[in-house]
Nucleic acid binder design. Structure first.
Lengths: 222, 222
DNA sequence: GTTGGAAATGATGTCGACAATATAGGCGTT
DNA sequence: AACGCCTATATTGTCGACATCATTTCCAAC
């Protein structure tokens, strides 16, 4: 089961505009904290204001923009505290996801996950740092999807992960920690393979907590 | 700090329609799983289709309705599995909320919370079952808000709690468990007052887990 | 009788125009 | 010069009409 199986393709014009805007926001083409003028965007993207409004509404439900009545929409502003709070939620949710994955993933899915990790290990040894982030993402996504919990999947995949990526891009952080994180991944998968829910959750929470601590250190020194 | 301080009042027409629709959906006036026709609703609520569309968009971000492009919106259908999954997410998030509340609530807020619980105890002894649900809600809301984590607050207050109430109303469940739940509340507050993050999280998780088990029993016997 | 397709119907998606509101700037007063 | 008010302007909110798409229905062919 590929991740691509879960990205619904854009059919309507509002869909495309939404996806485009989301990329532009996450990647920083439109600066964080800036105002989103409907008229301006409608000329820029060559669509009507109704389409822009629809796109902005969806961005708001991703927590990427905030709207005030009769005033307009602003892209959320990124703060160190906000990033910490995001990681706290992520710790809680992905911990639960790992617990549920240990219960609900099929043996085949677990085998695939193990294979993925071995594959990932080869490329890490090779020192290809580009594939690292994608590999990390794949690992986390598979466990989230493996929880089989729709609410969990929705909040993490459509909400939190885009925000985290936005922080990562705009705070100029490198991808996830390289060497140590890999062992942590391995242990989480082992716990899942052993169907040890308790341990899987604990290890995943620790893994994310370490990430958070790592980020906090980088934030302080900069 | 009252809960009312956090309910933004409706200023625009779409706001009012959204709030009205949300009540009608949660309380079951519009049956779960039914289709939401834009034209029909626009005549029923005496507003233009644009307003209805905006309202439906917001309902979608609460996970109360689902939309498909060029087809329309349906109210989510309620399933026992969905309710269980909801409680799993709730356990993870409110557990984390209790942990953060133990760290971040002010001494005054904790004193207020303790007073609330004493007050609640008096009414429970009096046997007034109506106030019970409100008291339970107040308890949980204060801890959620006490976490001081905006993401946590958003997801729980604007998302999950409305859904849970929808399940509670439409599955015809009584309010929260009466007698035992009160002791659990007391212990959570004690842990928070002692600033014991670990225990506060564990107790809150157990509290919600018991609720879930209680619900599962009721679902099976019906 | 069944199946396939095309037209008809009804819905959602998109658009431009108008109304209502917030903000900025200028003007007058103190 | 500072403050308040009022007007001007620009933005958002709302509306009705049109375009586009999904679904249904009906008819014809097999």
């Amino acid at each position: 089961m590929s991740i691509a199986a879960f990205v619904e393709q854009a059919v309507t014009s509002a869909d495309k505009t939404f996806l485009q805007l989301r990329v532009d926001i996450v990647e920083g083409a439109i600066p964080a904290g800036s105002k989103l003028s409907e008229t301006e965007l409608s000329t820029k993207y060559q669509v009507s204001r109704a389409v822009i409004r629809e796109a902005i509404n969806r961005l708001e439900s991703c927590h990427l923009v905030e709207r005030k009545a009769n005033v307009g929409a602003r892209i959320v502003s990124l703060t160190p505290e906000g990033l910490i709070q995001l990681y706290q939620v992520r710790e809680a949710l992905e911990g639960m996801a790992a617990r549920l994955a240990a219960k609900n993933m099929s043996d085949e899915e677990i085998a695939d996950l193990t294979a993925l990790l071995d594959n990932h290990f080869q490329t890490v040894k090779g020192g290809e740092s580009y594939y690292q982030e994608a590999g990390d993402l794949d690992f986390h996504y598979r466990i989230i999807l493996g929880s089989k919990n729709q609410h969990l999947i929705e909040v993490l995949v459509n909400g939190i992960y885009h925000l985290i990526r936005m922080y990562r891009v705009q705070f100029g952080m490198a991808g996830p920690r390289v060497t140590t994180a890999f062992d942590e991944h391995k242990h989480v998968v082992q716990a899942i393979a052993n169907r040890d829910e308790e341990l899987a959750e604990m290890l995943m929470r620790r893994h994310i907590l370490y990430s958070k601590n790592n980020i906090e250190r980088k934030l302080l020194q900069s």
